[in-house]
Computed example of a mutant assay.
Amino acid sequence: MIISSKKGQWFELIVPSEWQGLTSEQLFSKIWHAPKKHTHSLRMNKEVWLNGQPVIWTEPLNKDDRLRIKLFSDADFGMIPSYMDIHILYEDDHLLIVDKPAGMNTHPNVPEQMDTLANGVAFHLQAKGEFRQVKHIHRLDRDTSGVILFAKHPFVGSLLDKMLEERQIKRTYTALVQGKMPFKKGTINEPIGRDRHHPTKRRVSPSGQTAITHYEVIENQKDISLIQCQLDTGRTHQIRVHLSHIGHPIIGDSLYGNTSVKERLCLHATELNFVHPLTLETIQVTSPANW
């Protein structure tokens, strides 16, 4: 874990021993994998300082050096802040993790929309006096509940996007599915594409995008199974499509073949696990399913 703090608009950290000898240039490109465009902007605007002076990007860092980066400039939320009772599971200066209820969109589809989780996050930040562009790192379907990660500034957003792409953010889902699963564990590796006959539906299709879902059975009952899933990819409706494809649609999922009268989709994002890119703290957040 790195010793760090917020100093007004600046993020300050104490260089740890493992960065000894790296240049600031290498820190941004090799350790953080920061986008070149963002790094260039920080560089041109002299928004990275070392020990009280603008950093010399090609000089090596030393243990206990004081590195400052301007990360917390005010910005437009990108949507209309709207009060709602949101459940925050974790928050720091850089990111927050929220427990989304079922029946709510993750983010607005049109600028004037005000009833999404992102609108509630914007209001929460506004109430704290933090004017930040709200950015979800991943999303959940409207009818899926559970944990969602938001970035509070563009720099950490870009780092988290890269981590998600490289599967360094582990997401675990819990689902109730129709029927008794025949195997304790399994992997569904089937490409997913749009259904030409339905505007929002997806289907397994040879011409679709690669999609990989791992599952493990937690409990088998007579005609219902409780399972956990982890994703290597993040396609729209991925878990729902894959489980329906193998003959075990999620309870409450009428779109993909379940005829249950259950009022809601029994799919919940139960856990998020990753190493914080700026503090190196291990973040593990859980939210139990409540059907």
Rank of each mutant, 00 (worst) to 15 (best):
Q228G: 09
T213H: 01
L61C: 09
I224N: 08
E59T: 14
F123Q: 11
F183M: 09
G129Q: 05
Q20I: 12
I188F: 02
H214N: 12
T279L: 08
H124P: 06
A175I: 03
E166R: 10
L22I: 06
T210H: 13
E219G: 08
V121A: 05
H124D: 03
V261F: 14
I69Y: 04
P16T: 08
H38F: 14
L226T: 12
I246T: 01
Q53A: 15
A118I: 04
Q20F: 08
P81E: 04
S82N: 13
E219A: 07
D92N: 04
F183I: 14
L89M: 13
W49G: 03
P206G: 06
L50Y: 01
D93H: 12
L96H: 00
H214T: 00
T116L: 06
Q178D: 14
A269P: 01
H198V: 11
T58F: 08
K36F: 11
D253V: 06
P249A: 04
D143N: 03
K185D: 15
C229Y: 04
R68N: 11
S205Y: 05
I246G: 00
G193F: 02
T213G: 05
L164W: 05
G120E: 06
K36E: 08
I224H: 08
P199M: 14
Y173F: 11
T279S: 10
Q53W: 13
D85R: 08
L159I: 00
H276G: 05
P191K: 07
T39G: 10
S287E: 06
T286V: 09
K70W: 07
A118M: 03
R240T: 02
V217I: 10
E12I: 11
S29M: 09
V241Q: 01
Q113R: 07
L96E: 01
H33L: 11
I3R: 11
K128C: 01
D65A: 13
M1N: 14
H214C: 09
S207V: 13
D141M: 00
R203I: 08
V261Y: 14
A175G: 04
R167T: 11
I227W: 04
S287V: 05
L176Q: 14
D64N: 14
K128M: 03
A289T: 12
W57R: 03
S145N: 00
I212G: 07
K170H: 10
S260C: 09
T259R: 09
D85L: 11
K30C: 10
G78C: 03
V121D: 04
S82P: 06
T259Y: 13
D85P: 03
I218H: 08
A122C: 02
Q209E: 12
S158Q: 09
T282D: 13
D143S: 07
L176R: 09
K185T: 12
D143F: 05
N45H: 15
E18M: 15
K128S: 07
A289S: 13
E263A: 13
P108I: 00
G120H: 02
F11A: 05
D253M: 07
L42M: 09
T286P: 04
V285M: 01
H242G: 04
Q178T: 10
Y173K: 01
F11S: 06
R132I: 07
P249S: 14
G157P: 04
E216L: 06
N45P: 03
G234L: 04
Q168K: 15
S225H: 07
L125E: 05
M104D: 04
